[in-house]
C-alpha cells in the first residue's frame, strides 16, 4: 500500500538553514546537510529545501548544498525557490535533486510547466501554489502571499495538472503560521478534482492536524517546518499516531 508522506521543509539562505532549529545531538543546526541526515534517520519520507537567497551568490551556494545533500542523504528531496528556466532545473537535477518546485515563474509563464514536464518528466515537476480566501474564493498569491493574482486556486490547479505537473504543493496562506490545522476543505476539493498527488502545507500545530489533513483533507503528503525543527512534534511520534488512526505510513 502506498503510504502517506511526511515532509519536513527547510528554508535555506546562502547555503544555511534559517529559522531556529532545536535539535539535540546536532553539531551544527545551521547546516542543512546535518539536519537532512537527521530527518532521514528519524523516518522523514522526503525533504523540501526552499531557497530564499535573494542574491546570485546565494543561488550558487544552493547548488553546492544540493550536491552535498545528494551525497549524504538516502531519501528523495525537492528543491524550490527562484527557479525560472530549463537551465535552472537541469543544473539542480544534475546536482542530485529529485524534484524541483516552481511557483511564481509558473504563474508568470505557465508554458514553463509544459517545457519542464516534456524535458525532465512530470515526476520531477512540483508546482507550489500559495492561496488565501478572499470573499469565499481561494485566490492564488505570489511572493510569499503578498501579491494577489487573478487566478482561482482550483482553476489554476487544474491548468497546472493539464500542463504536466506531477504534484501540487498547496499552502494556505490563511493557515500558514497559525498552528491551527491545515486547510482541509480546500485540500479535499483539490484532491477530488485532480488526479495528481497533493501535498498539504500551512497550519501544522499538532499530531491531530496531520491525522485530519490525511483523513478530511485527503492529502497525499503533509509538509511542515517549525513543528519539526523545534522538536514540538517528532517524526516518530507522528507516524505512530497516524498508524493508530489507520493511516498507512512507512516505518
Amino acid at each position: 500500500m502506498l503510504t502517506k508522506r511526511i515532509i519536513p521543509c527547510l528554508d535555506i539562505k546562502n547555503g544555511r538553514t534559517v529559522k531556529g532549529v532545536n535539535f539535540v545531538n546536532l553539531k551544527d543546526a545551521g547546516d542543512p546537510v546535518e539536519l537532512a541526515k537527521q530527518y532521514a534517520l528519524k523516518g522523514a519520507d522526503e525533504l523540501v529545501f526552499l531557497d530564499i537567497s535573494a542574491t546570485l551568490e546565494g543561488r550558487k551556494t544552493m547548488i553546492d548544498m544540493v550536491l552535498k545533500v545528494a551525497e549524504h542523504v538516502n531519501i528523495p528531496f525537492t528543491v524550490g525557490g527562484g527557479i525560472t528556466s530549463i537551465n535552472d532545473v537541469d543544473l539542480l537535477l544534475k546536482s542530485g535533486a529529485d524534484k524541483v518546485s516552481i511557483n511564481s515563474s509558473a504563474v508568470k509563464r505557465p508554458e514553463l510547466i509544459n517545457e519542464l514536464a516534456n524535458k525532465f518528466g512530470s515526476q520531477c515537476v512540483v508546482v507550489a501554489i500559495d492561496a488565501k480566501q478572499i470573499n469565499d474564493d481561494w485566490i492564488v498569491h505570489l511572493a510569499g502571499g503578498s501579491v494577489p493574482t487573478n487566478l482561482n486556486l482550483f482553476d489554476w490547479a487544474k491548468e497546472v495538472e493539464a500542463r504536466g505537473a506531477g504534484e501540487i504543493l498547496f499552502t494556505s496562506m490563511d493557515n500558514d503560521g497559525t498552528k491551527a490545522g491545515f486547510a482541509n476543505q480546500a485540500l479535499a476539493k483539490l484532491s477530488d478534482t485532480l488526479n495528481i498527488p497533493i501535498i498539504a502545507s500551512g497550519g501544522a500545530g499538532t499530531v491531530q492536524h496531520f491525522v485530519e489533513t490525511f483523513k478530511e483533507g485527503k492529502a497525499d503528503a503533509a509538509l511542515a517546518a517549525s513543528v519539526f525543527h523545534f522538536g514540538e512534534i517528532t517524526i516518530e511520534e507522528l507516524k505512530v499516531a497516524l498508524k493508530d488512526n489507520n493511516i498507512e505510513v512507512r516505518f
Partner: peptide, 28 residues
C-alpha cells in the same frame, strides 16, 4: 493518482537481489 509517488511495499521477493530484505519492505 498518477504518477504513483512515494513509498510502497515490495512482496513476493524471489531473487538474490533481495537477500536480507524483508517482505513488505518500503521502497520509493
Amino acid at each position: 493518482k498518477v504518477p504513483q509517488m512515494g513509498w510502497n511495499t515490495i512482496t513476493d521477493l524471489k531473487s538474490k537481489l533481495f537477500k536480507g530484505v524483508k517482505n513488505q519492505s518500503f521502497m520509493y
